[in-house]
Design a protein around this nucleic acid. Structure first.
Lengths: 219, 219
DNA sequence: GGGACGGTTCGGCGCGGGCCGAAGTGTTCC
DNA sequence: GGAACACTTCGGCCCGCGCCGAACCGTCCC
């Protein structure tokens, strides 16, 4: 008879307004930082931290710690489906946008910014191009000619670490972070090669960006 | 953004051990009385009453008041499916029996006892037969020759009301209750014509019962 | 090194709600 | 009418937990 207790346990995780708001935000399939979720739900950072720990321990969310950030996302499409089932039951009336489990995994693969650099399929494409050009090694260390290439692109070394490998959340492949990654992302955004879409961290490669990348030999 | 609050609300209903136990018991598709559920969950009758009110108001359960009893059942197969989804997520490990939404609506139509008389398809069949024999009118009032028939069957009038119409839960048709209905049910059980199956209120017409009913002209 | 910042831990506050027993209502039976 | 019984309502207890601010840790930038 104890299997309904497990049900009560997972229901308890979703029975709180704040945790439900977290899950609702994460239904877009992207990874959010703890602070973003705290702001989104209108709650203190300490409160959000505790909620996230509980949701992760309950198997609803997975985390991805990176530097001083704690990224968090739905544990998988099965969680999205569960949330959709419950939301569908709760209110077929007051549902502003239709939840589609497909949109979750689809959005997961979209291009996005990762703190201050590019990630997602876009970030992977950039990394591949830079490796192909010899700007960085396969381990994402900047080469001697790579530094020249970067400087021609407006990059100026600072005290910040030039390059860092950042494990891509959706692609499970490292992409370029660090000062060089941030610089490239900033330049792409300034030139309009990469445009933000929506209010979140999602981005897309604009037509101008496609041409620019082609001329640079990135793609 | 408010649609996740509805999710939190329905989750809150299921987040309690006792309410979850109620729903788990009701997953068999039958209607339970408030007391049965209270005993099942090991909780006071007053506590169970409050829980049931909340579950009904939340749309998870429907009630069926009858005399001094309050029957309660899942609001429909969609509730069973929701419970199954959540239970499947909660524990694919500790699940003693597989939950099948189909079993819910199937069991709802089975024969069963209703307090002290027959209900379900079996009760409807009995009522139709008695009407056909002229024992009772279509309104379930015992006729003059019907009383003779009942006395030949061992029925002895008492101070208890001879017959009452009881709205059948699954068939939406009245069936025979009262002293006559209780007497017939008791006799059928004593003769082995009707047998209890499982530990609940479900019953089935045994082969001997089929023959007996045929000889009596009930079916 | 110093400053900024994201995240975590901890103590404490206050509300919500699950529980019971007692008293009350309505129904059934004799 | 009286007794038994299913259920409900109410008052009160107490635990759980959601929340915050303050202090602290680790990372990043310069």
């Amino acid at each position: 008879m104890g299997f309904m207790e497990g049900l009560a346990q997972v229901a308890g995780l979703l029975a709180d307004r704040t945790r439900a708001a977290f899950c609702g935000a994460l239904l877009d399939g992207r990874a959010w930082t703890a602070r973003e979720l705290a702001v989104h739900a209108g709650v203190a950072a300490s409160t959000a931290s505790e909620h996230l720990t509980r949701l992760i321990e309950g198997g609803l969310l997975v985390e991805h710690r990176q530097g001083r950030h704690r990224y968090v996302a739905l544990a998988g499409p099965h969680v999205a489906e569960l949330l959709e089932s419950m939301a569908a039951f709760a209110g077929p009336d007051a549902r502003p946008r239709s939840l589609r489990a497909a949109s979750a995994s689809e959005a997961m693969a979209r291009g996005r910014t990762c703190y201050d650099h590019l990630a997602g399929q876009l970030g992977i494409a950039l990394r591949s191009g830079l490796v192909g050009l010899g700007v960085v090694t396969a381990e994402l260390a900047v080469t001697e000619p790579g530094m020249v290439w970067l400087k021609e692109f407006g990059f100026e070394p600072s005290q910040r670490q030039v390059s860092r490998a950042c494990l891509d959340w959706t692609e499970r492949v490292p992409h370029l972070a660090g000062a060089a990654g941030a610089h490239l992302c900033r330049v792409f955004l300034e030139r309009g090669w990469v445009r933000r879409i929506g209010s979140g961290r999602a981005v897309v490669l604009a037509p101008a960006g496609e041409q620019g990348w082609r001329e640079l030999g990135i793609v």
